Computed example of a mutant assay.
Amino acid sequence: MASRGTPDPGLFGPASVTWQMHGDPMMWVAGVRALYLQALHPRAVRGVMQNSDFRQDAWGRLLRTADFVGTTTYGTTEAAEKAGARVRKIHARLTATDPETGERYGVDEPALLLWVHCAEIDSYLHVLRRSGFPLTDAQADRYIGEHRVGARLVGLDPDAVPADRAELAAYFARVRPELAAGPEARTVDDFLLRPPTHPLLVPAREVLWRRVADLAYASLPPYAHALYGRPAPRPATVTRRLRATGALLRCVPARLRWQLPPKHILRAMARLGPGARPAPYKVGR
């Protein structure tokens, strides 16, 4: 929290790994990978499907997630806390039903919130590092640890959240037996492959969006490919594609990219000064 007269750096601040990473354009590919991964937890994805029309609102869900990440990363402490409170309030009143057992459960179960959190953080870290964003192992661990703060915002106990790569890997190994590509995951997969769009935009969807979705899917871990039942290119091929895509997107001037609403980064720079500009080379400072 900033003192009186001092600009509020927010929950993470310009000295964090998170601040530098989340300004990278490959976060969009990482976000789609997170959707693919999250859909493999039947209880978690059921909570989404039973409380919204995913096929009609998937774009809105993706944009709301991006806005939440942007607010909690670059917004003031007050804005981040309010965003977290809104999410907790929404989750607290939503339930889902297991069609096989009839069990009714809350979507804010800690185990489900933890899965969503870990799938997101793993996806952000994996895609950015593999696409060429410069992070040492120690900095990757620091990034994971920083996001215990974000986990608190959605209602998790920070002490129960993985703090580094070893703990995150152990978590995924522990939860893997619970994962499956059920009907809900198939719906997510189908949407991501062929999202509804205006007929005039179908060619653009096939040229642009399909490449993003294919790349996000290809970057999933092998067990996810096995569950979905669709093969992926060889890992070396995927890495080359990720690095080429990252290099291309990073050629677009950051100021131009950051003009897209809701302009979280530009607002943060206006609040804290030009020195707060996120950049990969600042991670090691």
Rank of each mutant, 00 (worst) to 15 (best):
residue 1 M to R: 11
residue 2 A to T: 00
residue 3 S to E: 09
residue 5 G to F: 09
residue 5 G to R: 01
residue 11 L to S: 07
residue 13 G to A: 13
residue 13 G to P: 02
residue 17 V to E: 11
residue 17 V to C: 10
residue 18 T to E: 11
residue 21 M to F: 04
residue 25 P to S: 07
residue 28 W to P: 01
residue 32 V to Y: 10
residue 34 A to V: 05
residue 39 A to N: 08
residue 51 N to H: 14
residue 56 Q to I: 00
residue 58 A to K: 03
residue 60 G to Q: 10
residue 60 G to N: 07
residue 66 A to N: 01
residue 76 T to Q: 08
residue 81 E to D: 07
residue 82 K to W: 02
residue 88 R to T: 06
residue 89 K to V: 02
residue 93 R to A: 15
residue 98 D to P: 10
residue 101 T to E: 00
residue 104 R to V: 15
residue 106 G to Y: 11
residue 106 G to W: 05
residue 107 V to K: 03
residue 136 T to F: 14
residue 140 A to T: 11
residue 143 Y to L: 15
residue 150 G to K: 10
residue 174 R to N: 04
residue 175 V to A: 11
residue 177 P to T: 14
residue 179 L to W: 09
residue 191 F to G: 01
residue 193 L to H: 01
residue 197 T to S: 01
residue 199 P to K: 07
residue 200 L to W: 09
residue 204 A to M: 13
residue 205 R to D: 11
residue 214 D to P: 12
residue 216 A to F: 04
residue 218 A to D: 15
residue 218 A to T: 08
residue 223 Y to F: 14
residue 227 L to Y: 09
residue 230 R to D: 14
residue 231 P to N: 04
residue 241 R to S: 07
residue 243 R to I: 01
residue 244 A to H: 03
residue 247 A to W: 06
residue 251 C to E: 12
residue 257 R to F: 10
residue 258 W to K: 01
residue 259 Q to V: 01
residue 266 L to R: 10
residue 267 R to V: 05
residue 272 L to M: 10
residue 276 A to P: 14
residue 279 A to I: 05
residue 282 K to C: 10
